[in-house]
Computed example of a mutant assay.
Amino acid sequence: MISTLKTTARTMATALAAAAAFTLTVPTGTAFAINEVSCADQGDFLRIKSHHSTGITSEDCYANRGRTDFGGWWIDKISTGNNDVRLHDANGSVVNIPRHRVVTYPNNPPKINAIEIL
């Protein structure tokens, strides 16, 4: 009987230690479900026209809630579609843009490190 109690206690202690280790090592928080979609598709997607310091220009569209790296590109135009958007600027500021807005930056575009759909 005592042997069974010790084995049960040891098994429970091992399970508890494994659960604690899992809890400490697995990050918590919002899942990053944002994904890039085709801009040719019709929809109220987040649409961003941007350029890089190398001279490359791009037009990218995103759907779903989450945050993704934007790589320090400069934004020339943003259309939020049906999304509330947060831009994380390279200078550390955060800019919120509400849904159904179109914003252009013809002279002084922001350099963005990350974009987030709320």
Results as ranks from 00 to 15, higher is better:
82 N>V: 00
112 I>A: 00
5 L>P: 01
51 H>N: 15
60 D>P: 00
67 R>K: 08
12 M>S: 14
58 S>C: 06
11 T>R: 14
67 R>S: 12
99 R>K: 14
113 N>T: 12
54 T>S: 15
86 R>E: 05
42 Q>F: 01
81 G>V: 04
2 I>R: 09
39 C>M: 12
66 G>Y: 00
77 K>L: 02
65 R>P: 00
97 I>Y: 00
90 A>Y: 04
57 T>S: 08
74 W>V: 04
78 I>E: 01
23 T>R: 10
98 P>W: 12
101 R>Q: 15
46 L>S: 04
35 N>Y: 11
61 C>I: 03
33 A>G: 09
116 E>G: 00
9 A>C: 06
52 H>N: 12
100 H>K: 15
59 E>C: 11
29 G>Y: 10
76 D>H: 01
96 N>G: 11
44 D>C: 05
25 T>M: 12
23 T>L: 12
71 G>E: 05
98 P>D: 15
71 G>T: 06
13 A>V: 02
80 T>L: 06
72 G>E: 06
15 A>N: 07
54 T>R: 08
75 I>G: 04
7 T>H: 12
88 H>F: 10
89 D>R: 06
29 G>L: 03
87 L>V: 05
93 S>R: 10
70 F>P: 05
95 V>N: 13
4 T>P: 05
49 K>E: 13
58 S>I: 06
52 H>M: 10
67 R>G: 03
37 V>W: 02
92 G>D: 07
21 A>F: 13
68 T>N: 13
103 V>D: 01
39 C>Q: 09
26 V>F: 07
55 G>F: 03
47 R>V: 13
85 V>T: 12
5 L>C: 08
86 R>Q: 09
74 W>Q: 06
35 N>V: 06
65 R>T: 11
115 I>S: 02
101 R>S: 15
35 N>R: 02
19 A>M: 04
83 N>D: 02
87 L>I: 09
67 R>E: 13
37 V>C: 06
80 T>N: 00
83 N>R: 07
20 A>E: 03
109 P>F: 15
68 T>K: 11
58 S>L: 12
31 A>Q: 07
29 G>S: 01
64 N>E: 09
30 T>A: 14
98 P>T: 07
5 L>G: 05
8 T>Y: 15
100 H>E: 11
66 G>N: 03
61 C>F: 10
83 N>S: 06
48 I>Y: 04
52 H>L: 14
110 P>Q: 03
49 K>L: 11
116 E>N: 01
50 S>W: 12
65 R>H: 02
31 A>L: 14
114 A>Y: 09
23 T>E: 08
29 G>E: 04
82 N>A: 15
37 V>Y: 03
117 I>C: 07
64 N>W: 14
64 N>I: 09
44 D>M: 13
15 A>R: 11
20 A>T: 07
113 N>W: 12
33 A>P: 00
3 S>N: 10
73 W>S: 10
13 A>K: 13
37 V>F: 03
106 P>V: 13
56 I>E: 15
105 Y>S: 09
74 W>F: 15
21 A>I: 15
65 R>N: 05
63 A>N: 01
41 D>S: 15
64 N>G: 07
75 I>W: 09
85 V>F: 11
99 R>A: 13
98 P>R: 08
85 V>N: 01
2 I>N: 15
50 S>N: 06
